[in-house]
Design a protein around this nucleic acid. Sequence first.
DNA 1: TGTGCCGGGGT
DNA 2: ACCCCGGCACA
Length: 353
Amino acid sequence: MEAERPPAPGPGCGRPQLRAAGRDPAAAPVSVPAPPQGPAVEFALPQEPEPRAADLGAPGAGAAGPPTPSAHIPVPGHRAPPGKARLDEVMAAAALTSLSTSPLLLGAPAVAFSTEPSLEPWREAPVRPPGSSGDGGWGPTSDQSSPSTPSPPLPPEAAHFLFGEPALRKRKSSLQGLFQCLWKRCGKVLSSASGMQRHIRLVHLGRRQAEPEQSDGEEDFYYTELDVGVDSLTDGLSGLTPGSPTASVPPAFPHLEPLEPPALPSLLRPPALPPPPVLSSLPAPQGCLAPVHPEPQPIPVRACAPALPTKPGANPRKPRGDAKKCRKVYGMDHRDLWCTACRWKKACQRFLD
DNA sequence: TGTGCCGGGGT
DNA sequence: ACCCCGGCACA
Ligand SMILES: [Zn+2]
């Protein structure tokens, strides 16, 4: 019960989080001359990557990079070192280029990333729910508003990163498709079926997460799946964002059915029901029989099915978004540049799918 | 093996 | 509200 913080890294670097502690605007060693034609945005991606690459070592090095001694502070505006262009540089440049520039730069080596027909949706950031956190996607820390005040190349921080490695971790993800909980007053919408199942199992069915037995599939009865394409998905998400003045129904989300011809049942049922069901006594469900809960839900869609993602003709798999997110774009060593959502391991808000 | 992120916990 | 991480599905 007591905190057994085993090996404290040491004073100064209590956690690997290493927030952008040293971000002094004044001391900021970065002063990239505002781009003459830069309309805005562009968090200053220097024409050339800093020599910092040397310190970072391998780009994909998940593990802590080699603690290269002498972390020389990168000089902004400093031209690339005459000699070699490291993969890191190219990558960074490419990523950044594709990010902050329009299709104007086609000759760049960023072709690797420009495979996407239309990116940088965030750039346009047409609708940013004001009610929501001002973070949205950009403005990681707080400053960064003027075009001439881009983000620093993280000078000394880089060193910290190397030393205070956050150790390794692992996670996964899934995307594409929306799932709405049909539970009376819930109506929660998740983007992953598994998540929804878990949600229902734990929250509504009050079931143990570690239930070795095969899932009875009961969860399937309480949520509906919304099949949507990537495009529509993005659209849906847009409207999904809180703060959508449109529509007179704040809850539930907007449209999404019109996208699909037929097939979509009447989902999204404005709850407006009494209290949620009680999850006290849990009668054992019987295979396909509809759950015998005291207060069943508005009847699920797939009434009596094998209850299992065993979809013969369809692809049960939900391909994840391919868009590179902050983590990949900036790398673990630039977490400060990630959007807040990414930093918190939430759905990226900067690089939408 | 690494990534994206839900859900839940801490403050 | 902000922040973070366990753990999972996916690539
Ligand atoms: Zn992000």
